[in-house]
């Protein structure tokens, strides 16, 4: 700890300097304004357009009405559990995708590389199959309920993970492998110390793309066949012309999407820092700063994530039991 203190940049900033504090505040404010200015402006415009009656409030409810709708939904129809259920489905699908995709990629890229090459074309075709039209087929296979939805989400996240992992497993630096072999490492040591760390960033990148696409498809899947979740709320509100509820649920979806994106970026920067960026140009925050995060914040984020995951699974399980036990679903 004492080492950390001497290394910390605190002493470098003269505390008594009179001009330092205001300019720092100004710089901080400027940075925040640069980041959030346009967003705040757009939110203000949204609010104003409702207040000044530029647009019909029944078509575009103002920001305050939308927030009120969120509060109302939270109280009346238990918005919290719907959010948890939606998140739980995405995470469940992602976990299946990871636990199938990554080992499959390892087997096909490392254990039997020749066989893997033969299967390449089949996986390409599978990856291009539209997950949404698989939904009816999954219903035939698994019956109604949560399973087909989770299967669709697992399918969506499986392929980016698999392709990323396969490429990474194939392209592990042979120099490192040779070094390890010449040092007489056992095969499991090579796996744990070299192959896996070298491939984890790519697997993670695949998982991020998978989550992104899962979110899109989840809302659609919940809109057509579900009795819970954010997509269901939107569908229901749309059918009943409760526009402010559509907007409210929409705001929740956007916040969740941005939040998950940020969380994954945080994880990548802190736990997989040896990867060279995730190279997904269409996820903007992959260009975020390289500042180390506060450990406490990091672990708190992870804890919240685990909690949300557990609660989501529990809610899904509960809902499934409810459907199965009710005489007339």
């Amino acid at each position: 700890m004492s080492d950390a203190k001497t290394l910390s940049p605190e002493p470098l900033i003269p505390l008594e300097s009179p001009s330092a504090a205001p300019s720092e505040v100004a710089a901080w404010l400027g940075a925040k304004l640069r980041r959030y200015g346009i967003l705040l402006f757009l939110l203000g415009l949204w609010e104003l357009s409702g207040r000044a009656h530029w647009v019909d409030q029944t078509v575009v409810p103002s920001l305050t009405l939308t927030l009120k709708a969120i509060a109302q939904m939270w109280q009346r129809i238990d918005l919290g559990s719907h959010i948890l259920i939606s998140l739980g489905r995405v995470i469940f699908g992602l976990l299946i995708g990871l636990s199938v995709g990554a080992p499959m990629a390892y087997v096909l890229a490392r254990a039997w590389p020749k066989l893997g090459q033969n299967f390449e074309s089949l996986w390409r075709v599978f990856g291009l199959i539209n997950p949404y039209c698989l939904f009816p087929i999954f219903v035939i296979m698994f019956g109604l309920g949560e399973t087909p939805k989770i299967a669709v989400l697992a399918w969506v996240s499986l392929w980016p993970i698999f392709f990323g992992a396969e490429t990474a497993f194939r392209n592990v630096n042979p120099q490192l492998l040779k070094t390890a072999l010449s040092m007489n490492c056992r095969s499991w040591a090579i796996f744990w110390r070299i192959t896996l760390p070298a491939s984890l960033p790519a697997i993670f990148t695949g998982a991020r793309i998978g989550v992104e696409m899962s979110f899109f498809i989840l809302i659609a899947a919940e809109m057509t066949g579900a009795t819970a979740g954010l997509g269901w709320i939107i569908h229901n509100a749309g059918a009943a012309y409760q526009t402010e509820r559509i907007y409210g649920a929409g705001v929740c979806v956007v916040i969740l999407g941005v939040g998950i994106n940020r969380f994954l970026e945080l994880i990548r920067q802190n736990f997989l820092a040896w990867g060279e960026g995730d190279g997904i140009p269409w996820l903007l925050s992959s260009r975020a700063s390289k500042q180390p995060t506060n450990r406490l914040v990091l672990w708190l984020c992870c804890l919240i994530f685990a909690l949300v995951m557990a609660l989501g699974f529990w809610k899904i399980f509960q809902g499934e039991n409810l459907i199965l036990s009710s005489p007339n679903p």
Partner: peptide, 25 residues
């Protein structure tokens, strides 16, 4: 730099959220 956050939010706006609203317009 200024547009980064709004663009990220727009990209997260699910087209199916917009479905009902686009139909209204």
């Amino acid at each position: 730099n200024y547009l980064e956050l709004p663009l990220e939010i727009f990209s997260q706006l699910n087209p199916f959220l917009l479905f009902h609203i686009i139909i209204l317009f």
